[in-house]
Design a protein around this nucleic acid. Structure first.
Lengths: 216, 216
DNA sequence: AATCAATATATTGTCGACAATATATTTTTA
DNA sequence: TAAAAATATATTGTCGACAATATATTGATT
């Protein structure tokens, strides 16, 4: 039971993360070590370490002597999470505008085109993944790895709530348009345009979140 | 060997973190599990978990099958770290300016006064701790717990480099002055003033960092 | 019947040992 | 002697078992 350069704990944590992102495990659900040992056919040691990794990623919450649970978020916390994501995006895009290379713009442009294609083909999940890649690229290209890590962390915490976005597929059209605008702004180094588009996107995201949470 | 509501792993991780912040363990140093078991008189299990906690806090880096090391940072990464801290401060202060209460201002004012006292008494370390408390309060008072967590995380990553700041005690005078300016800006809701003071503080911090890293 | 205490069960926390891997040392070979 | 191979040692990764704690169940008391 050992191959590649990853450790058992890492692989287990990734599998659990996927389950959570797919909604098989929902916020508040408990993660029982014994159950997981049976599921993965290992002892508890790597399971426990996998849970620590997931805790590091902010997906899961450990209550000492009580157990580990998929992290629950109040409405306020979700709003806070979104607010931070958009503030970080502002930072990344501001930096990116100054430093962007032609290759980077090309890569972003291609992603947008691909997104349009997947959306026409009704491949919502795929489109969403591209959208996440695009957003990640903003941070990768920003050139500040600490900022990138921070974004990955925050975005990781939204994994248990992916289905919110996925259940509003019409919003993706808007997202694509807004990203196109941002792309144009990057090209022309028009910061005001970039930030305005981003603000619109944020407002729409918050509106969806409101609608979703109220219907809970 | 069990009391309080904390777990062994947590307490061990805190003790190790203190050692790192005191410089007893320096960036790049390896953390050997066996050594730590002897030091803390436990088995390896809680040690390993303590190391996972420290990894979560970004203080320590785990290389699979190689070991765990106090996180090393390149000059670029330190600059990135500082940049992010200041961008986060901008966000927190912008929010705080709108929402601040009189009690909050009072608390901040008191901290500044205490800082001045400790500095006169040449209690550099104590002054630095107050400075950190003040900075943390900016985020606590911002009302966005996600932002607060993010700051704590980033600031935690600077723990192995605390001695940089501590070895430039004259800089604290400047810091206190700049915080006073920020305080005034918060009182009068003068965002431009706040951000300008912050920018000055950032420039000074970067200059010190440059000087420090070059002398390495 | 409801509340509390006592007991039983389930679950997490810790332990010591072995397995797998990486590092250091010695031996072999050219 | 230098490089490569073989061996030995050190270290991390995983395991199964026991200890401590939390939760659920049962029984006692009113």
């Amino acid at each position: 039971m050992s191959f590649e350069n990853t450790t058992l704990s890492q692989r287990i944590s990734e599998e659990i993360a996927i389950k959570i992102s797919e909604g098989a495990l929902k916020p508040g659900d408990r993660l029982l070590e014994l159950e997981l040992t049976k599921e993965f056919g290992t002892s508890r040691a790597p399971i426990r370490e996998a849970l620590f990794i997931l805790e590091k990623d902010g997906i899961v919450e450990r209550v000492p002597r009580k157990g580990v649970f998929v992290k629950k978020r109040t409405k306020k916390e979700l709003l806070d999470l979104y607010e931070v994501v958009y503030r970080l995006l502002e930072i990344a895009l501001t930096k990116l505008m100054d430093s962007r290379t032609d290759e980077q713009l090309k890569k972003i442009e291609n992603l947008i085109i691909k997104m349009e294609e997947t959306l026409e083909g009704n491949k919502v999940k795929q489109c969403f993944d591209l959208l996440e890649e695009l957003q990640k690229d903003f941070f990768v290209f920003s050139g500040n790895t600490v900022l990138e890590d921070l974004y990955m962390r925050i975005n990781g915490q939204l994994i248990p709530f992916r289905y919110i976005s996925l259940s509003y597929p019409t919003s993706m059209e808007h997202s694509i348009r807004e990203y196109s605008e941002i792309m144009a702004g990057l090209k022309e180094k028009d910061l005001k345009n970039i930030l305005d588009s981003l603000k619109r996107k944020e407002k729409r995201a918050l509106a969806i979140l409101e609608k979703f949470v109220d219907s809970q």
